[in-house]
Amino acid sequence: MTIEGAEPGTVRPGGRTARVRAAVLRAAGDALAEQGFAHLDLADVARRADVGKTTVYRRWGTVTGLVADLLLDMAEQSLPRTRTGSLLGDLRANARLVQRTLTDPRQGPLFKAVIAAATCDERTAGALRRFYRTRIEEWAPCVREAVERGEVPEGTDPHEVIRAVSAPLYYRLLASNDPVDEATADRAAEAAAIAARAGAYVN
């Protein structure tokens, strides 16, 4: 049974199918982190997951279909947002979550590989956009709550504030290769909070 319009691998399964999906996605993440997108191979992923090649090819079809499902799973498994009662506290929690993800021995290289793939593959780029849209939507309410508390002006764009928190961290990961540490995460959160209070993100 298939769902009309669903991408390969994106229908949420149960039972044995769920276990197969989990094993394959874990193997795909490991392979991406180790070898990058250019060397990702469905047969190798099947071998790593101890799953039949036919199952992987039938379910995901292509490498990009597998990466799209991996990003969907990562968005679903990501930790829920933290509520601290202040905008700065919430943004600092967000920044530290991003920082921990980007410096994780597995997740950091995996993100680098997926972002690199997205620059030359539109399907991967679309999946990456959906991933970040999901994460931004998860954290946007902390800005709306700050508006309600009077911490930031009416009309502040929640999405722009959340983007401003993580952008410096991704720049360090992908461009400057400077350390992505907690102090950097805290500075990014503080800068975004100060700018938001000053009305920099009012539409």
Rank of each mutant, 00 (worst) to 15 (best):
R133N: 07
L25A: 12
T17K: 12
R187M: 10
A93T: 03
K112D: 15
F131R: 15
T54W: 05
G15C: 07
I136K: 02
A75L: 09
A195D: 14
R106S: 13
G89H: 05
A200C: 14
E151A: 05
Q107F: 02
W60E: 09
G5E: 01
A185F: 00
V180A: 09
G89W: 01
L173F: 00
Q99T: 09
A28Q: 04
E138A: 09
V63F: 08
E7G: 14
A117R: 06
L72E: 15
A38L: 05
A193N: 03
A193C: 08
V98W: 14
D69I: 01
R144Y: 00
A167F: 03
A6K: 12
E151Y: 00
A140Q: 06
A6D: 09
A116K: 09
L169F: 04
T82A: 14
R48Y: 02
V20W: 00
D73T: 09
V56H: 04
N177G: 11
G126Q: 14
N177W: 01
A18V: 01
A198Q: 14
A188E: 06
E7W: 06
A175E: 13
F111L: 08
R197E: 12
A27W: 01
P153G: 06
D41W: 03
G150A: 05
P80K: 05
I194V: 14
V202F: 04
R26F: 01
T2C: 00
V202R: 15
S78C: 06
E4H: 11
V24Q: 05
R129F: 07
G36E: 04
R81A: 13
R197H: 05
T184W: 06
E145R: 14
A193K: 00
V20C: 03
R92S: 07
A33G: 13
D157F: 10
T134L: 10
F131E: 09
H159S: 15
T2M: 12
A146S: 03
A49Q: 02
L91Q: 04
V51W: 08
G5W: 03
T64H: 15
V63G: 11
A127E: 11
A31F: 03
G155T: 02
G29D: 11
K53C: 08
F37E: 13
L32F: 07
G61F: 02
R144T: 10
A198Y: 01
G61E: 08
R106N: 09
A49M: 04
Q77W: 05
G9S: 10
L40E: 01
D90I: 02
A185G: 10
V63P: 10
E145L: 13
I3C: 10
